[in-house]
Design a protein around this nucleic acid. Sequence first.
DNA 1: CCGGACGCTGTTAGCGCTAACATCGACGCA
DNA 2: TGCGTCGATGTTAGCGCTAACAGCGTCCGG
Lengths: 338, 338
Amino acid sequence: MRALAMSDVAALAGVSHQTVSRVVNGHPNVAPHTRERVERAIAELGYRPNASARALVAGSTRTLGLVTVKINQYGPAQTMLGLEKAARAAGYSLTVSILDDATAAAMRAAVDTFVAQRVDGILALSTYDDAAAALATLDPPVPLVAVQVGGGEDRPAVGVDQETGARLAVRHLLALGHRTVHHVAGPADSQEARGRMAGWRSELESAGAPVPEVVLRGDWTPSSGYLAGKALAARIRGGEEVTAIFAANDQMALGLLAALHEGGIRVPEDVSVVGFDDLPEAPYFTPPLTTVRQDFAELGRRGVQLVLSRMRGEDQHPEPVAPALLVRSSTGPAPGRA
Amino acid sequence: MRALAMSDVAALAGVSHQTVSRVVNGHPNVAPHTRERVERAIAELGYRPNASARALVAGSTRTLGLVTVKINQYGPAQTMLGLEKAARAAGYSLTVSILDDATAAAMRAAVDTFVAQRVDGILALSTYDDAAAALATLDPPVPLVAVQVGGGEDRPAVGVDQETGARLAVRHLLALGHRTVHHVAGPADSQEARGRMAGWRSELESAGAPVPEVVLRGDWTPSSGYLAGKALAARIRGGEEVTAIFAANDQMALGLLAALHEGGIRVPEDVSVVGFDDLPEAPYFTPPLTTVRQDFAELGRRGVQLVLSRMRGEDQHPEPVAPALLVRSSTGPAPGRA
DNA sequence: CCGGACGCTGTTAGCGCTAACATCGACGCA
DNA sequence: TGCGTCGATGTTAGCGCTAACAGCGTCCGG
């Protein structure tokens, strides 16, 4: 049983396969009643043109490839949604490859598969240095754009402006009268984490506030935030002045909150906490979390827009997406200053 | 500038394109030194075989399509990861289509695109009735398996056993001495939500416990759980006996926890709460949440296994995946019974 | 020393489609 | 009326690949 082909439709409609092709592709110069006969035949047989054959002759699959790493985090997952939606809106399909870790070999294999599939463009989503390094060694014959990771030299990229986001958080805390802001950072090998840390530091510096040691470099998980919270609680009980904490993401902020709560430290009365990401759960943390929101849908849109423009040979350099601060109840005036 | 083809490699290696094909596909009967020459030429040019051309002649793209709806929830997102991983492990690529809503038209369009792309099999992931209904109207020329949604009549499907999961939760609560268990349900049009509700009810019935009215049919969001919690807190203050609550997912349990906390009701001293899903955040809720865990990786594996077996023409009917109860600190003995 | 088998390689056809060119009839204008 | 034009349709080639078959040299057994 051979699959349905254009010639089957042609036979049923009593025309040549080329006429069917013209109807399918909406060419002009087809007599209305011929077009109608062909359309009826298509509907009757349930015919769908074979994309492989089309791709073979057209040299384009109208497909984009997405490689991504460690997508269990909220941010990457949302970005992926945004990318898929934007791709589909532009008439492209998305083929995904979700890697466990960003080794150069795994990246290379994924990109290789995409190249073999003749995707029209490739999107790489990750914030880890490993991924960035692996990307740098790659030179696929189609445009490759990095999402949420500065691609290095001349690799085109889109991202959210982490530094600005962090500055927003710190500025908010300083405005509330806190003398300084402690930071629970993300992993050292994440560009995103470093961006947030850089923003935190530079905002403190430009406000003339002291820059404390980073409390802990977590791994984005609630559990590492919990560890940081335990350490911080001990220091506070030891008399150290810690009144404001900026956690590099909401999940760590959650762990932090739990540890602080256990340690009998009240948020926001004793300590203010800000996160980053705006998880759907964040408004229901105890207390509801002040955080920085990233617009992942917009990021996805720009990512797709950038590959498409590269495919057209344009040399566009999009602006980073601006994040926004959402103030809820986990932040308040510095103690003794209300 | 034409893209690299097999003939370019053949020319460089001084052989026919068919010999290149044999090398690429690992056929025997190629002289070792010829093979080596060809391999060198491939490496030198960075040649990758054109999957479209292969698919055209072989009739198989080694690609699976995944349609899914409302993937912002943790469960579906994790399942998708599991599916991608399992597909890649089996040597298949995954093309995804993430719909905003499960209208029949959108589903049909997505499946149509997959058929045009000549995917070898299709996976449909959703728990909503809309999606199930839309699926029922579809009859693609390749196997279509439903994941996490009973496909109806003869549509092959894999899923987690929601009912058993719910019974686990209820049994745990009853064993702690609670007279009965209240339920904060998920949306009425979700099969998953109904499965959890059915398990809750039947476990209560078989234990001879009274079956209270469902507190509220939420929409999986923390915010709907919060509403339920507000209502419940009011009823408790009004003197009603509510000591154990089973929320249909962790996010709603989180909202519930927040509302209970605000209402001055202690968990687990006054009320025990169980969720469903085991979010990464769940151990860090206040208090850490007892919940039911679903093994999404396993679900993904079975889903892929099922399509593949269908593609081979087998008629396999896999068992549902068994969930497991994780006891943390949000559940305790019924008040006055410690 | 010859014929058949076998191992290696090349040639050919065809997968389903689109672009380019060919054909054919109708119509308008001189 | 004749010819050019144009619109509708058909025919052909070729995209890059694999399967099937053909050719050709080598080696072994009788």
